[in-house]
Write a protein that binds this DNA or RNA. Structure first.
Lengths: 399, 399
DNA sequence: GTATTTTGTTTAGCGTCGGCACAAAGTCAG
DNA sequence: CTGACTTTGTGCCGACGCTAAACAAAATAC
């Protein structure tokens, strides 16, 4: 009866990622007729997900009737996004298009017991839902640890002092049920849970520096160790059990520091904030986060030869690791986050030269290396993961 | 009018890979009704691709009406498969299901000029087509070099003494046109060309030891250097420009031999046949291939402590490389070919122990490591790549 | 003001698939 | 051997989701 049901999900994803600003573009991107695209847009509007603005959009120079503008409904449904990191947690409501609708002030409690902290972050998010009265369609959580699939357990929550193997997805889902947070179809939310760098990569791919990339590699370091993520054709690649892109144990300095993995000179211990501070001869203090200390040092004392030499050392190590990943994954774009982003911006040419020099064929060495561009990309990524069921089947999710 | 057009390709792939022995299984695998599955099977039979045998198939113990058997048509169309390696070339006709229908005797001419050798192998295949009178639907070529996409040039045909960057796909397509080899739809064949290890992985995934794996990693060494390949959800992952899984320059021995890439102790120079022969104190002779010499040594003199020690050394290096790949790719199965297969079979436990020890989480370390099981897997893989258009859209390809 | 271009909408029609009823072919129980 | 049961194959109908085509609308070009 109704037209345009099969294309509903793809159409929403196009508007969601900003690739379908008008009905005309939507028609072309979906590869359907104008009639179908019109019906799809009408259906999405009826569902309260998008808005159609009949006012023309300053058609610059183009002939013909101007196309109507498609935009995401500003008062549409949201998902609950949560992030736990070394220094605390943060909760937010995120709409389609990666728009942060409401944020709870980042809490700086040190996360001791997983159940306790997850309850707290969900309660903060549920409070935002009550305050704003927005409809909620799901919930996502980012944690600084590999998350095993399909169990949803945190395997190495190193800087959270959590037990290895903590059942984070289960705890998250239970907390959501306790706080009455609804998910797709009005049923209790499922509690999508993932590694923070993985989710950040997803967010950057959809709304940030990774837009349009086919094979996107992200590498970042925040506190201790180095994280990686890969987005292939728009889908996160997390391996057969969620453990892909654990890039921290690539050898980047054969004569380097011993690593707990049994080898020496792993990326984890050669290219994280602690490695940088140590190389610069600074004693890391306990007050501020290692990332913040490294960032301050890099920004304020880059003129100091010792600091500059330390930065170049870490850049060289990182470049070796990236080159190894390029040889294995052959991405068409690389995005760096955390300290790696700062190092890239301090001396972009050096990093690019090392990667190009050590990648096998000049061409794959010339892969663009960019800084991440989204604020709170792990949080937005958690929201993206929570949105996925809606993007896959809007009708079922809105039931 | 006709039912079951959308499912035609998936259905053919199921029969092709042996996952749909009967109409009943086909119905379940496709997730359609019996009526649709029946129409699909009838259509594929009318196209001459499969056969439906109404005779029951010894229904062991099961109740109800026995299902009709589905099988691939023995006299159906074929594709031309070609392989070029260090010692010569080989051509064959391959039907659906990876069945070798006809083979030209492997020619042992040393491949000097790419155009010349590609013309010769295509001519050998065209001869088989003339002899057998079979209908041809495409052609595939496997070469021992990375093949850049989308150009189709051989970037490192190291042991062929070809110029780097030889336009192999173009040469192959031209040779096919010269020999009047038809492709999908009767038009001149397109000349699908790929790296031999990549194509071998594809073949093993569909018809060999990789059947049923979601994320399949293949590693092999034949002559010099080490090749890798990854099959993700049934599709070859060759990266954004065909250069993925160039695994030869993973560092596996920090104090090892210098490598032309500028580093030391790369997998390429630490775990190939030459490395093994050298470690065993043997002087590689020029008569037989390095792989053959290694294989003979391993099989006949494994009792010799020096040989055994050399094997263990190479196994340890290989294990380190595999562990690194496991940490990055998190495959659910690994298949080894060439000398690596021999080493695995000589001492399966040692390799598995090294990989498990150096993989991050015990669980991903327990990934099964198997030998490849197909003869001529690169050749079959070239055929698989050539079959792909037919599997994607049988109607268009047979048009 | 008229022609042209491009977009949105309406209507008719058609292809593909699910649902259902029925027939066919085997097993199982007596 | 017979009848009940189970499972598979097929024909018919209708619904769903799309294309095609004609028409209407809104801008630019001349």
């Amino acid at each position: 009866m109704e037209r345009g049901r099969g294309a509903l999900g793809p159409a929403l994803e196009l508007v969601h990622t900003g690739r379908a600003p008008t009905r005309a573009v939507l028609t072309a991107e979906l590869g359907v007729t104008r009639a179908t695209a019109g019906a799809v847009a009408a259906e999405l509007e009826a569902l309260g997900l998008i808005e159609v603005d009949a006012r023309p959009a300053a058609a610059a120079g183009s002939q013909g009737r101007p196309s109507h503008r498609l935009s995401l409904a500003p008062d549409g449904p949201v998902v609950l996004a949560a992030q736990i990191h070394a220094d605390g947690f943060r909760a937010a409501l995120v709409g389609l298009g990666g728009r942060m609708v409401a944020t709870a002030p980042g809490c700086m409690t040190v996360p001791a017991d997983p159940a306790h902290i997850i309850d707290a972050v969900v309660e903060a998010g549920a409070g935002l839902l009550r305050e704003t009265g927005r409809r909620c369609l799901g919930a996502g959580l980012a944690v600084p640890s590999a998350v095993a699939e399909p169990e949803g357990t945190a395997l190495n929550p190193l800087h959270l002092s959590w037990p290895a193997g903590a059942p984070v997805r289960e705890l998250f889902t239970e907390a959501l049920a306790k706080a009455d947070v609804p998910g797709p179809g009005g049923a209790p939310a499922l509690g999508v849970t993932g590694n923070d760098v993985n989710l950040a990569a997803l967010a950057e791919h959809r709304h940030g520096a990774g837009r349009g990339a086919r094979h996107l590699l992200c590498v970042a370091t925040g506190h201790r160790g180095v994280g990686g993520a890969l987005v292939l054709d728009g889908r996160l690649h997390s391996g057969s059990s969620g453990l892909a892109l654990e890039v921290g144990h690539l050898t980047v300095n054969p004569a380097g520091l011993p690593c707990h993995c049994g080898s020496r000179g792993c990326l984890d211990v050669e290219a994280d904030p602690l490695a940088f501070l140590t190389a610069a001869g600074r004693d890391p203090g306990p007050e501020v986060s290692l990332l913040q200390q490294s960032r301050d040092l890099l920004r304020t004392e880059y003129a100091d030869p010792a600091v500059r030499a330390a930065a170049e050392l870490v850049v060289d190590r990182l470049g070796l690791g990236l080159a190894g990943l390029v040889n294995i994954l052959n991405p068409d774009r690389i995005i760096l986050g955390g300290l790696h982003r700062e190092l890239l911006e301090a001396d972009p040419e050096r990093l690019r030269a090392v990667v190009a020099d050590r990648s096998l064929w000049g061409r794959s060495g010339s892969v663009p290396i960019l800084s991440c561009t989204l604020d709170h990309n792990s949080l937005i990524g958690a929201a993206e993961a929570a949105w996925q069921p809606v993007l896959d089947d809007p009708l079922a999710a809105l039931g």
